[in-house]
Structures are given as structure tokens and as C-alpha cells.
């Protein structure tokens, strides 16, 4: 596959276990809209099993960044390379579209803030979960349904709702269904855009707890965009703070939140409402 490249200095790569190398590597990524900056010169790595939070207020460029690294949006400059299942690093923007889309529906997941953007509202919950399985060639109705049913259970949706359409579901259930739909192919990397946004606090807590469990059980790597620092603290190992398109501070999540260095991070942290 000529579209895949190995990262420079790959001579000793075979000797290094895949878990000892980044799963995703972002380098010099910028997205410019005419005179407006989406995000500028962002570089970071995500390691297997790591949860990275990207925080910042609306307009800080965090969603633009997420869309670029998940290949939903072409960056102006910069590269995103991903460690494919065979261990090689693939340049996401030099892959063929077929390869990229295959990646997106097998080894990656994308959880949208609004479940309507990530679900098929007019097909049943079971088919929503089963779609990815069918897309990768599963052709046994019984086993597709069994797997869908198991996943509904894992996201705490009653098995007897399997034939209901998501429009009959509450916001929290829809979001959990969207998560199941993404995880059914056992992706290694999941992108999440404000997954708890717009949910009631109690529903949010349940979802966060569920996500936390799934992430650790499945050893998922997650890149989560959120403006909620409490969500970032609960879920993430590492954090990037963005302002005006730039990463202004990054590090271990509790270090950044307990000992913020940049003026803007201090402002963000001091703005959290205490309960």
C-alpha cells in the first residue's frame, strides 16, 4: 500500500512494541479560513489507551482541531499519522478516500455532541448498532442482532428497546446508543465532541461513568473536546488548553488543573463554579 508511509527513522521500529509508540501523531497542524484562524501549529501525540482532553471556550478552535485530526476536515498544513492495525504508521491525509473511510468506520469512532448527527433516526436501535458490522461484511442476521443486543446492554439500554427507533429515546439514551454504535467494531481510537453537552446533570454523570468504564475496559484511546473542565478531569489523563487556535498549555490533567501556569488556564480554572 503505497499510500501508507513509515515515520522517519523507522529502522528499529519492528523491535519496538506497538504500545510503545504513539497511536496518533499530529504535527504542525493548522487550519486557516481565509483571514480567520481555525487552529494553528498544533502538535501532539496520543498513546494507546490514553485519554486526551482538548479544552477551551467556544471559538478557541478545539472543534476545528478535532475535525481535522479525525480527517473530517482537510487542514491547511500539517500531518496526522496513525498507527494502523498492522503496526505501520499511515499518513491520514495521504490515504485513499476508501482507506480513510474504512478506518473511520472500523478502527475509529466519532461521538457527536448531538446524537442526531451520529445516528440514523429512522432505523431501529439494533440496526444503528449493527450497521458497522454489516459494513465490514457480517451477513448473519442472528449474530449481528446478538452483538447489537449485547452492546445495548453494555450502554445500559434495555434489550427490549432493540427494535425501537432512536427518536423514541431520551437524550441520554440516544447518546449511549451513539456510543454503542461506534464501539461495536472495537475501534482503538474514539473522537468525542462534547459528548455530555446538552444533557441534564444527572444524565451527564451516568454517561461519564459509563464512558469511564468503557474506556478502561476496552483500553480505548480517546480524544475528547469539552469546555467542561470537570469532564476533562474525570475522563482524561492529559489535557490541551486552547485559546485563539493555539495550544497554550498542556500536560497531565490534574497538574494543569491544580497548578495552571498560563494566564488563560488560570482564568478558566478559577471560573469553575463550586458546588
Amino acid at each position: 500500500m503505497s499510500d501508507e508511509i513509515l515515520i522517519e527513522g523507522d529502522a528499529g521500529f519492528a523491535a519496538v512494541a506497538a504500545s510503545e509508540r504513539p497511536l496518533l501523531s499530529v504535527s504542525g497542524l493548522s487550519k486557516i479560513y481565509g483571514a480567520r484562524i481555525g487552529c494553528i501549529d498544533v502538535s501532539f501525540d496520543v498513546w494507546p489507551g490514553e485519554v486526551l482532553a482538548i479544552v477551551g471556550e467556544s471559538g478557541s478552535g478545539k472543534t476545528t482541531l478535532l475535525n481535522c485530526i479525525s480527517s473530517r476536515l482537510a487542514p491547511t498544513t500539517g500531518t496526522v499519522s496513525y498507527q494502523m492495525r498492522d503496526g505501520r504508521m499511515g499518513d491520514v491525509f495521504r490515504m485513499s478516500e476508501a482507506e480513510r473511510r474504512h478506518l473511520m468506520r472500523t478502527d475509529w469512532g466519532f461521538v457527536h455532541q448531538n446524537p442526531i448527527d451520529g445516528l440514523r433516526m429512522s432505523v431501529s436501535a439494533g440496526a444503528n448498532v449493527g450497521e458497522r458490522l454489516m459494513a465490514v461484511g457480517q451477513r448473519h442476521y442472528g449474530s449481528i442482532r446478538a452483538e447489537a443486543s449485547e452492546w445495548l446492554g453494555r450502554v445500559e439500554i434495555d434489550a427490549d428497546r432493540i427494535d425501537d427507533q432512536p427518536r423514541a429515546f431520551s437524550g441520554g439514551m440516544r447518546q449511549r446508543l451513539q456510543i454503542a454504535r461506534n464501539l461495536v467494531t472495537e475501534p482503538r481510537l474514539v473522537f468525542m465532541d462534547e459528548p455530555t453537552g446538552g444533557l441534564d446533570v444527572s444524565v451527564q454523570a451516568r454517561l461519564l461513568d459509563l464512558l469511564r468504564g468503557l474506556v478502561s475496559d476496552l483500553g480505548l484511546s480517546v480524544i475528547i473536546v469539552t469546555h467542561d473542565l470537570a469532564v476533562a478531569r474525570l475522563l482524561s489523563d492529559r489535557i490541551l488548553v486552547m485559546k485563539e487556535g493555539r495550544v497554550i498549555e498542556s500536560g497531565l490533567t490534574d497538574r494543569v488543573l491544580d497548578d495552571p501556569r498560563a494566564p488563560y488556564t488560570q482564568l478558566l480554572v478559577s471560573s469553575i463554579l463550586q458546588v
Binding site: 500536560g251 497538574r255 491544580d258 497548578d259
Partner: peptide, 9 residues
Amino acid sequence: LKMLYGNYG
């Protein structure tokens, strides 16, 4: 203590 734990820079 927090520096030792990496919690403070």
C-alpha cells in the same frame, strides 16, 4: 507532597 506526586509543577 503534590510536587513529588507530579500534581504540581
